[in-house]
Simulated assay, not measured.
Amino acid sequence: MILLTGTSRPFGDGHSAIHKEPADAALFCSTLGLPGDEVADPRFHGGADRALHYYPAEHYQFWAHYWQSLGLTASPTPFEAGAFGENLCGQGWTEHTVCVGDRFRLGGTLLEVSEPRCPCHKLNTRFDYSHMALQVQLTHRCGWFFRVIEEGDIAPGDTLERVEQDPLGLTLAQCNAILYGQPFNREDLTRLAEHPKLTSVWRNHAKRWLETGVGGDWHRRLFSHPATSQ
């Protein structure tokens, strides 16, 4: 496991803590995350339900291939651990094999999957590509957040081990598909709205769609960004 933290700094037309640096020693992880890991906008990042962001290392090969296949100008951010602002980067688990509510041991901590990462326009700036956030959303390569059930030390190289599978079996990829990859489906949206381990943010998105019949507006989240060159 690669362990990363970062501080808030100027970014685009505002600030962000998306820049992360690898830790070279164990860190104590509390219910609010890792020491020294800052959050620029607590409305959308951090807190007990978003204490740690995990991104699968397997996805970086895909993004490098995507860039090459489209003939895009080289990304200013290398496709390697930390590129998506994650705290944890490892192999063996993806959005298709991990479910909301699954519990994992990592070092001295016990973690619980709380929600898929919801990509925003800062990824467009990060990679200098105006459709990056949209592509992350549509390919379901979003990563996810953990809440911390038991605090403890995490060290670089620790292994992420699933110790409990949530009985409802709602994968992170399914969450993304239900909310972003298909038209209105009452049964599927109800699965999100009623899942006791899914964050209230995600449950409320599903509830609003069920109540109004109108899906969420993605445009501001995905495209409200400074101009990019491609």
Rank of each mutant, 00 (worst) to 15 (best):
L3V: 12
L3F: 10
L3S: 06
T5F: 01
G6Y: 07
T7N: 14
S8R: 11
S8T: 15
S8H: 07
R9S: 14
R9Q: 14
P10W: 07
P10S: 10
F11L: 04
G12A: 15
G12N: 11
D13N: 15
G14S: 14
S16E: 12
S16D: 11
S16W: 10
A17W: 02
A17E: 03
I18L: 09
K20F: 11
K20V: 08
K20N: 09
E21W: 09
A23V: 15
A26D: 10
A26H: 05
L27E: 09
F28C: 10
F28G: 12
C29K: 02
C29S: 10
C29P: 07
S30I: 08
S30A: 13
T31Q: 10
L32R: 11
G33N: 05
G33V: 04
G33C: 07
G33Q: 01
P35W: 01
G36R: 06
G36Q: 06
D37G: 07
D37E: 04
D37P: 08
D37L: 02
A40H: 06
A40V: 05
D41V: 06
R43A: 12
F44M: 08
F44I: 13
H45S: 14
G46C: 10
D49F: 04
D49T: 15
R50F: 03
R50E: 04
A51H: 01
L52Q: 08
L52W: 06
H53Y: 08
Y54Q: 00
Y54F: 11
P56M: 10
P56K: 06
E58P: 05
H59S: 11
Y60L: 13
Y60V: 11
F62Y: 13
F62M: 02
A64V: 11
H65L: 14
Y66E: 13
Y66K: 10
W67L: 12
W67H: 09
S69G: 12
S69N: 15
L70F: 15
G71K: 12
T73S: 14
P76N: 03
P76W: 01
P76L: 03
T77P: 12
P78Y: 03
F79R: 02
A81E: 10
A81N: 07
A81Q: 04
A81P: 13
F84K: 00
N87W: 02
G90P: 07
G90T: 14
Q91T: 15
Q91G: 12
G92D: 06
G92T: 03
G92K: 04
W93L: 14
E95T: 01
E95C: 01
H96Q: 14
V98Y: 02
V98R: 01
C99W: 01
V100W: 00
V100S: 03
D102L: 05
D102Q: 08
D102N: 08
F104L: 04
F104R: 01
L106A: 05
L106K: 07
G107A: 09
G108S: 07
T109A: 07
V113G: 12
S114P: 04
E115A: 02
E115H: 00
P116H: 01
R117S: 02
R117Q: 02
R117W: 00
C120R: 00
C120F: 00
H121W: 15
H121E: 11
H121R: 13
H121S: 15
L123E: 00
N124D: 09
T125M: 04
T125R: 08
R126C: 09
F127P: 04
Y129G: 02
